[in-house]
């Protein structure tokens, strides 16, 4: 990774500790911390979702997320950023991803957080499978 800010990529099976993640990006020179949390919904495409499973190409996902973090720093001059994505089984209501960005002012942090989640949706090799009462399906269409 390039630049001087802290950039952290976490891929983990365990639940995400939100407070800890936000704390990680804070600094006394930053007036803004923007976060995005993606959660598992109980319904999708007209079906009741029981739980999800995420699979990741972990080595490559890490690289793609690191590139996106570098790009965000280059474009908006943010200070610190963190992306934590879970894999494995995740229950309804739980967070599958958190993105946290800090910068001196809010505008850049909002833009960078949006860019990071959009990049995850487009480019980072992670897949979700939805489980219903009557089966399961890999999700591979664009939302």
């Amino acid at each position: 990774m390039i630049g001087s800010g802290m950039k952290k990529i976490i891929l983990q099976n365990e639940p995400i500790d939100m407070a800890q993640m936000l704390h990680e990006v804070e600094s006394d020179s930053d007036g803004a911390v923007v976060s995005f949390v993606g959660k598992v919904r109980k319904n999708s495409r007209g079906k009741n979702v029981l739980h999800l499973e995420y699979e990741a190409y972990r080595e490559m996902a890490r690289k793609e997320l690191a590139k996106a973090a570098d790009e965000a720093e280059e474009k908006w001059g943010i200070s610190n950023c963190l992306v934590a994505h879970r894999f494995g089984r995740i229950e309804v209501g739980e967070a599958s991803i958190i993105i946290a960005v800090s910068s001196p002012h809010r505008h850049e942090a909002f833009l960078a957080a949006q860019y990071l989640i959009d990049t995850v949706k487009k480019k980072v090799p992670i897949w979700k499978k939805e489980y219903y009462s009557d089966g399961s399906s890999w999700i591979n269409d664009k939302e």
Binding site: G38, Y54, A56, Y57, M60, A61, H85, S96, I97, I117, V120, K121, K122, K123, V124, P125, I126, W127, K128, W138, I139, N140, D141, K142
Partner: peptide, 10 residues
């Protein structure tokens, strides 16, 4: 070589 279906993370 990795063969990847369209991604759906997040």
């Amino acid at each position: 070589l990795a063969i990847l279906p369209p991604v759906s993370g997040g």
